[in-house]
Design a protein around this nucleic acid. Structure first.
Length: 826
RNA sequence: GGGCGAAUGGCGGAAUUGGUAGACGCGCCAGACUCAAAAUCUAGUUCCCGCAAGGGAGUGUGGGUUCGAUUCCCACUUCGCCCACCA
């Protein structure tokens, strides 16, 4: 007998699949479609890691499952290649990001093929290929046309030593990651996408998504809708100036004892007096220098009085205006009315700076008075509104403000517009040019793509502009006959991944970003699998989808029907895998050590529920390898050991060792072959049902367990040819090479089998008897008798063990036929 | 601080609608095979008592609902993840 040699058969099948382009999706099919994808990877120089394998294998199992169910399946693949690692590598080594990317892609492709993935390689995409990013730029122009791509001054991290802008992740403990100098915030003109224009729809449509609840919640929180009011406070001294604040609690307006502005608030400069100016300016400077981490670590309230006062519109009180960094410039109006009696943060601030605290909401009597009650209650000290319930008062006070034109209802979102400028070379160039007066113009569509110029040094220049600024010739461009200068910022990588799913339908289309007919057939994506980007990427694709739907370019408003969010795989020690800890498991090592791709794939599906983190177990891999070996032995190792049987085909595939005691025992059994055949048929149908249903609910680990049970059973009772065919078909999504080898030798196709419900029922059923909820006996009852409750009760009462616990007639009995359970209450 | 999720043998995990807790795998243990080992096969493996039949306890802790709770409700403990001064 040949031994199971995974590396040999895997190479054989991979070569065949390659040659026949076995996984090309059919654009012209009339069959129902299924479009699956993983979150495409950033191809790092380290190659695939076990996390990729888990992610891609989930998609592959489903791809093969639906293909075997004879759907028309699209399962493409691509690479998200723009980003800092390639750029930093280029800065360090001088090797161009283009060249490094090409090498990494070749490696990823080779490794993905080695895993036997059923990928339609004709649709491979790469976001840094001009063929692709021409259309990313086209998307930008569409957003620009509709006013959804715009420029605004915004604060960015800036290193005064390196003279460069830094991304958030390049700021470590408030310092520059390269030189270690403290970073500052610098105001710069930046590009934004107006995602807030879709805030309401993005929020509302979350309900309809077949996505994990935790992702949906994360998106709801991120969007952060809150209802409240904007209220105008006039300044004293009869000035026409006013300060508008946002509050969710207009009912507490009588308790507003001071105003607070964010340090960045534009009015601050005009509120200072000669006395306060130096202190306020110093405070603003230090506040802007504070890093995010410092803000998080030290929540001690700080602030400074501007020297000006405002008038509380409801009671005419004069209240001081302060500046403090606990008020954020990007949210609401960047200014708040502080109600220290009912807001914890305002209270802390008032306490520190000895500002007055006036309670205006009385909690219900059964609630103990808190230091700072922020719940609902009855209004006190609130003029004509005193005595109203707080919820009611919110309405009344806003109406009162509205009638005077000094306030109105307002909905605010935590979500900000999406900042997409990156002062980086290795990103998609923004297709914009500036005229002599600095006004931005779109690069005309027929001049796309705007391609990266060659440069010698990839480091950003001293002005904070990307290395693109060093390509003097490239910078000059003629647009509509006018000499202009190109934009040197590039797009955030998330822009490239906001539309790639649609590119897959016509990956190399030179006329469109996506083919308008094919998109109707294939999209939206039916199942999308990933373990990252809960809000960012998964919100951005939804945003672009709605935008392009509004342009009439997409016939749907949600891009992803079902999302599977897979967990991480940790090292055997339970810690995150990392090079520095030396605990990294390389999936290619697992394959090459002799286990093969089928074992690796099946193991990663068996490791635990797909959506939870799991720890790698080298021993566990061995267990799965043994299982696949047993599959092999059943199919190829049995000939020499066929049991004597009336039907040699029936008992084909007995384990190779005939000397064991179990066999001897079974040989002496009186069980006829017909009885054994009936039993295996039942298990066969049970397994088909279990594996099919488990794949539908993405329960991969239990599907593999069911296959293991099946194989264990076939080992005991012998496998018929039919059993082996079913095993091969059910195994194929997990271990496609081995299963293909099996099905080929059995001369069988791989069409997914169906089960016959009537074959699942046995003649005799085990009925569980409980007394007072405790298990006391198990009865063998003929199926026909299980429908008669009285008969079952009578049978139960005859059982000697039941009799020990039931004296006389039971008080009550509960019979649950479908669970084969009888509970007697004694 | 807020939100979400989780807690089951020695370990990873299963139990899909409130109905036999511990499937499957690892590990361990005994046996077969072998000169021996590995590999393979067979059997056992929640804990306690018992030769056994059987009994008792048992799904983080405490309570509740129910004939019956890993599953539902309340309170608490621990761990994980995400967000975090969002007015």
């Amino acid at each position: 007998m040949n031994r199971y040699n995974p590396l040999e058969i895997e190479a054989k099948w991979q070569a065949r699949w390659e040659k026949s382009q076995a996984f090309r999706a059919d654009d012209t099919s009339k069959k129902p479609k299924m479009f699956l994808a993983e979150m495409f990877p950033y191809p790092s120089g380290a190659g695939l890691h076990v996390g990729h394998v888990r992610n891609f294998t989930i998609v592959d199992v489903l791809t093969r499952f639906y293909t075997q169910q004879e759907l028309n399946v699209l399962r493409p693949f691509g690479y998200d290649t723009f980003g800092l690692p390639a750029e930093n590598y280029a800065i360090k080594t001088g090797i161009s990001p283009q060249a490094a990317t090409a090498t990494n892609i070749a490696n990823f492709r080779k490794q993905a093929k080695k895993l036997g993935y059923a990928i339609d390689w004709s649709r491979e995409i790469n976001t840094s290929d001009p063929e692709y990013y021409k259309w990313t730029q086209w998307c930008f122009l569409k957003l620009f046309e509709k006013g959804l791509a715009y420029q605004k001054e915004s604060y960015q991290w800036w290193c005064p030593v390196d003279q460069t802008v830094l991304a958030n992740e390049q700021v470590e403990n408030g310092c520059c990651w390269r030189c270690g100098h403290e970073v500052e915030k610098k105001k710069m003109k930046q590009w934004f996408f107006k995602i807030t224009a879709y805030a309401d729809e993005l929020l509302a449509d979350i309900d309809s998504l077949d996505w994990p609840e935790k992702i949906k919640t994360a998106q709801r929180n991120w969007i952060g809708r809150s209802e409240g009011a904007e209220v105008d406070f006039t300044l004293e001294k009869g000035s026409a100036k006013k300060i508008t604040v946002f509050t969710t609690r207009p009912d507490t307006l009588f308790g507003a004892t001071f105003l607070v502005l964010a340090p960045e608030h534009p009015l601050v400069k005009s509120l200072v007096t000669p006395d306060t100016k130096p202190a306020v300016e110093a405070y603003i400077k230090s506040a802007l220098k504070k890093s995010e981490i410092e803000r998080q670590e030290n929540k001690e309230k700080t602030g400074v009085f501007t020297g000006s006062y405002a008038i509380n519109p409801v009671n005419g009180e004069q209240i001081p205006i302060w500046v403090a960094d606990y008020v954020l410039s990007g949210y609401g109006t960047g200014a708040i009315m502080a109600v220290p009696a009912h807001d914890e943060r305002d209270f802390e601030f008032a306490e520190k700076f000895s500002l007055p605290v006036i309670a205006v909401v009385e909690p219900p009597k059964d609630l103990a008075a808190e230091r700072c009650y922020h719940g609902e209650g009855t209004l006190v000290n609130s003029g004509e509104f005193t005595g109203l319930a707080s919820a009611e008062a919110r309405e009344s006070i806003v109406a009162w403000l509205e009638s005077r034109g000094i306030g109105h209802k307002k909905v605010t979102y935590k979500m900000r517009d999406w900042l997409i400028s990156r002062q980086r070379y290795w990103g998609c160039p923004i297709p914009i040019a500036y005229d002599k007066s600095g006004h931005p113009h779109p690069i005309p569509e027929d001049q796309l793509p705007v391609i990266h110029p060659e440069v010698k040094d990839y480091a950003p220049d001293k002005s904070g502009r990307s290395a693109l600024a060093k390509a003097k010739d490239w910078l000059k461009v003629t647009v509509d006959g006018e000499e202009m200068t190109r934009e040197t910022d590039t797009l955030d990588g998330y822009a490239c991944s906001s539309w790639y799913l649609w590119r897959y339908v016509s990956a190399h289309d030179t006329e469109h970003a996506w083919d308008p007919e094919l998109i109707k057939y294939w999209a939206p994506t039916d199942i999308y699998v990933g373990g990252d980007h809960a809000v960012a990427h998964l919100l951005y694709v939804r945003f672009w989808c709605k935008f392009f739907a509004d342009l009439g370019l997409l016939p749907f408003r949600e891009p992803i029907k079902k999302l599977l969010y897979n967990g991480y795989i940790n090292a055997p020690d339970g810690k995150k895998m990392s090079k520095s800890k030396g605990n990294v498991i390389d999936p290619l090592d697992v394959i090459d050590s002799g286990y093969g791709a089928d074992t690796l794939r099946t193991y990663e599906m068996f490791i635990g529920p797909y959506n939870e983190d799991a720890a790698w177990s080298t021993k566990g891999v061995g267990g799965v390898y043994r299982f696949l070996n047993r599959c092999w032995t059943l199919c190829f190792g049995g000939e020499a050991n066929v049991l004597s049987s009336e039907d040699p085909e029936l008992r084909r595939g007995r384990a190779r060792d005939t000397r064991d005691g179990g066999l001897a025992r079974r040989a002496s059994d009186k069980e006829s072959f017909a009885v054994i055949a009936a039993k295996t048929e039942q298990i066969r149908h049970k397994t088909i049902k279990k594996v099919t249903q488990d794949l539908h609910r993405a329960s991969f680990n239990t599907a593999v367990a069911a296959l293991m049970e099946y194989v264990n059973e076939l080992y005991k009772s012998g496998a018929s040819k039919e059993d082996l065919i079913i095993l091969g078909k059910l195994l194929k999504p997990f271990a496609p090479h081995l299963a293909s080898e099996m099905l080929e030798s059995l001369k069988a196709d791989d069409v997914w089998p169906t089960w016959d419900e009537s074959k699942l029922a046995a003649d005799v059923v085990e009925v569980v008897v409980q007394v007072n909820g405790k298990l006391r006996a198990k009865l063998s009852v003929p199926v026909a008798d299980t429908e008669d409750e009285d008969k079952v009760i009578a049978l139960a009462l005859k059982d000697t063990n039941v009799q020990k616990f039931v004296s006389g007639k039971p008080k009550k009995s509960i019979y649950v036929p479908h669970a084969h359970l009888l509970n007697l209450v004694a």
